[in-house]
Nucleic acid binder design. Structure first.
Lengths: 245, 245
DNA sequence: CGACTACTTGACAAGGATCAAAGTTGGTGG
DNA sequence: CCACCAACTTTGATCCTTGTCAAGTAGTCG
């Protein structure tokens, strides 16, 4: 694959990005704790979800915004023919359900037992109308979602399977570090099918690629849901397309 | 390609989408005229761009939000190795440059001679702070960008080249209809390389696919930049993955 | 009119999808 | 506690789409 890009862009305008320690294309959904409506959450109600049960579905009336307290959520959309695109994974501290239409535009489903705090949209909007700081907090939170979506786009748009998987692993690693956890041990709360549908490849390719990364010594697969990253700089090089496997 | 999706989603939760006239996955950037800061724009300055000249680049300080008055803009990001992902195309009436960080996260470049109206971020933020309707307008505008990004993701994540091209053509057609233009004639203000980098395929594949669609009688290529859509329902079926070519 | 750029077409190869089967894991009940 | 079953994951073999390389065509601008 690895599309050589017939790029017409003026070279003077090319983005400088040769700092090798920095994977410029990887960014993570940052917990929006501090930004968003901090005085509203305490009053809100909790909801418990079992594994695989939906938080909301495409087309549902948009009633609440949710903050994940524990567990993990898979956000996805279905294509007409049953294929599925996973849009994002959300973990504790993350906000899901933002958006302005009256209907949900995606599906949210628990990956494991999950607890969420529910804030009614109506209350949020009332607050936003009187307090522009809240409204701008919403703007800021969505702005981050746009950036995340664009980086996801780059990941699956012009990258081969190995790059995609490496990028995915590093994304989770970054997410851990953002939360003060170790960056070199990554747990995968999602099934291979979720990873596959996130990256736009098949489960077989996900599996084979992880095996290959293990054989090459870049990672260890300690359990089926636990990876140890052994060669971070090579993984980054892989994700950036600087080397092949 | 056409990844058969090993989907674990509960069938009861599957989105109903068999209305064949509706291409559920295609949505267009809606001009935000009415929503966004209508009283601020009149005071703002204009800027004229030549073909291929940049409006802003990744990493630039985020100084303005722009409304396109005429012409077209290509929004893209570069990967470390020089590959390029086109994020979106923006036409007259569209707003570009929204986002909350202090630096631009993408590049914006004119596809042809383009005139934009420039609104300083500082002024916009001042207005948003005192007027929550403006702040919520910003939120709403970004919310639409998120939806567009997600649909772009679905397009390139799980679709073969033909589906991608068909989806792209239909997207432009919809955009025309939204603006009150004919939906069956689509002009392509961008080069093949821009389409390719938008869809995550090569220019050769774009070219071959357009030729194939022509040969099959789905479109006419009247000029290199002008397509006539001859069989809309088949194009929609193609885009949705219901048929092959 | 020639040089340049953009686009198209062809031949070939490679990466990933598909189909098939074997191996793991986790839960249930005897 | 272990045997069994279902769901998930890994591995293997093969085929197909699309990327790559290369050549040729068509517009465009000086």
């Amino acid at each position: 694959m690895l599309a050589r890009s017939h790029t017409a862009v003026d070279d003077r305008r090319r983005v400088q990005s040769s700092d090798p320690g920095r994977a410029a294309t990887i960014s993570v959904r940052v917990p929006a704790r501090s930004l968003l409506v901090e005085d509203e959450w305490p009053r809100s109600k909790w909801r418990h979800l079992e594994e695989k049960s939906p938080l909301y579905s495409e087309g549902d009336p948009r009633t609440h915004v949710y903050r994940i307290l524990s567990g993990a959520i898979c956000l996805f959309r279905m294509l007409e023919d049953g294929r599925r695109q996973v849009i994002d994974f959300a973990f504790d501290g993350d906000i899901v359900g933002l958006g302005s239409g009256s209907l949900e535009t995606s599906n949210a489903q628990a990956l494991s037992a999950t607890k969420v705090s529910c804030l009614p949209i109506a209350r949020l909007m009332t607050a936003a109308k009187t307090n522009s700081r809240i409204a701008l907090g919403l703007y800021e939170a969505l702005s981050k979602e746009v950036v995340v979506a664009h980086e996801h786009l780059m990941c699956i748009g012009h990258r081969g399977a190995t790059e995609r998987v490496a990028t995915f692993i590093l994304m989770l690693s970054r997410r851990n570090e953002t939360r003060g956890l170790a960056g070199d041990v990554v747990t995968l709360p999602m099934a291979r099918v979720d990873i596959a549908d996130f990256l736009g490849i098949t489960i077989e390719t996900v599996s084979r690629t992880l095996t290959r990364l293990k054989v090459q010594g870049l990672i260890d697969i300690e359990q089926i849901t636990t990876l140890r990253l052994k060669d971070m700089s090579k993984l980054i090089a892989l994700a950036e397309g600087r080397v092949r496997v």
